[in-house]
């Protein structure tokens, strides 16, 4: 199915995933956007699939002869864009500010049980 041109055609710009790689996934039997995402990372970059999602859906539609209306969409979860762990940690700490027991435990990691 794939040809030379597909090697140079980008579907997911964020993760540099080519049309060839997507068609290979389909040839191996992957049937959904989420499956292809898990094996290639297509849609996991900064834009979170905003560009490639429909392009991959079109490839699936073509390969499996399913109209676009019926191509299964990926699961949408927060956050809509990547954010730092620090931003989440700061939010958590400020929320529990004053509750030394909780924030202390989180910082010490004493509950972590990391095999000491």
């Amino acid at each position: 199915m794939a040809n030379n041109a597909d090697k140079d055609t980008i579907l997911c710009r964020c993760e540099d995933i080519t049309r060839e790689m997507i068609l290979e996934c389909i040839a191996e039997g992957y049937q959904t956007i989420d499956e292809i995402k898990r094996v290639t990372r297509a849609g996991m970059g900064p834009c979170q699939g905003r560009t490639c999602r429909l392009l991959i859906a079109q490839e699936l539609s073509r390969a499996y002869h399913v109209p676009m209306e019926e191509v299964l969409m990926s699961t949408f979860r927060p956050p809509t864009k990547p954010l730092t762990m620090g931003a989440l940690a700061d939010a958590w700490l400020s929320e529990y500010d004053g509750d030394a027991a909780i924030s202390g435990r989180a910082i010490d990691g004493k509950e972590g049980g990391n095999g000491e």
């Binding site: 927060p78 956050p79 809509t80 864009k81 954010l83 931003a87 700061d90 939010a91």
Partner: peptide, 22 residues
């Protein structure tokens, strides 16, 4: 300010200046 999520309980989260807002 970028909205990051709308949750089942109706809470909306957003990111502004590296701060996670609800």
């Amino acid at each position: 300010t970028t909205v990051l999520g709308i949750y089942e309980d109706g809470v909306v989260t957003a990111l502004k200046d590296e701060q996670h807002l609800k």
